[in-house]
């Protein structure tokens, strides 16, 4: 952040707050305007731009992250509200050694996405779904993913990807065919 921005923000009339986030296991303390959304703080202040903004009013789901393991729209939260929380973003899905999360591997196998702008939100929603319900049916997958909009795929390949991930996470390492 530039000194000019900070100085201007201090005179903008709102509160400036210190927020201690832990993002993908790393401590990420920031000093920001209280009005800044978690999504903007992640993208612009923490520098993790994998979380995307599609609508900024809580409908498209592209900004979905996990907060203490629970899925949430990062555009519908002030960063200040989640001071002290553990946040997981798409950048935190793979293992430290680069091994991809089963959902990432499955989406590659299924050719789940096209432009993939929506992918971060879908992946985080899918991770949350599989944590809640490790063996979802196809219609349960559709229902849970209905909070995320995709404009490219017609969703079928994304649902296929989650099904492959389910099989992989339940011990079928091939994931079966898509």
């Amino acid at each position: 952040m530039t000194a000019d921005r900070l100085a201007a923000e201090e005179s903008a009339g709102g509160s400036i707050v210190d927020v201690a986030l832990t993002v993908n296991g790393r401590s990420a303390p920031v000093r920001v305007e209280a009005r800044r959304t978690l999504s903007d703080v992640l993208r612009e202040d923490v520098g993790l731009t994998g979380t995307h903004l599609g609508c900024e009013h809580g409908v498209c789901g592209a900004c979905t992250v996990l907060i203490d393991g629970q899925p949430a729209r990062s555009c519908l939260l002030l960063a200040a509200q989640v001071d002290g929380a553990e946040i997981t973003t798409i950048e935190g899905l793979a293992e430290p050694d680069g091994t991809l999360h089963p959902i990432q591997q499955a989406m590659m196998q299924a050719h789940g996405f096209q432009c993939a702008f929506c992918a971060p939100g879908f992946l985080m929603s899918a991770v949350a779904l599989l944590a809640d319900n490790p063996q979802p049916t196809r219609s349960e997958i559709r229902e849970e993913l209905a909070g995320n909009l995709c404009r490219c795929t017609g969703y079928q390949s994304i649902v296929d990807g989650v099904e492959i991930a389910v099989r992989r996470m339940n011990g079928d390492s091939s994931g079966g065919s898509s």
């Binding site: 629970q70 899925p71 519908l76 929603s125 809640d132 209905a146 909070g147």
Partner: peptide, 9 residues
């Protein structure tokens, strides 16, 4: 009620 990610907050 809305979607999972809304319901959790």
């Amino acid at each position: 009620v809305a979607h999972r990610a809304i319901r959790s907050r």
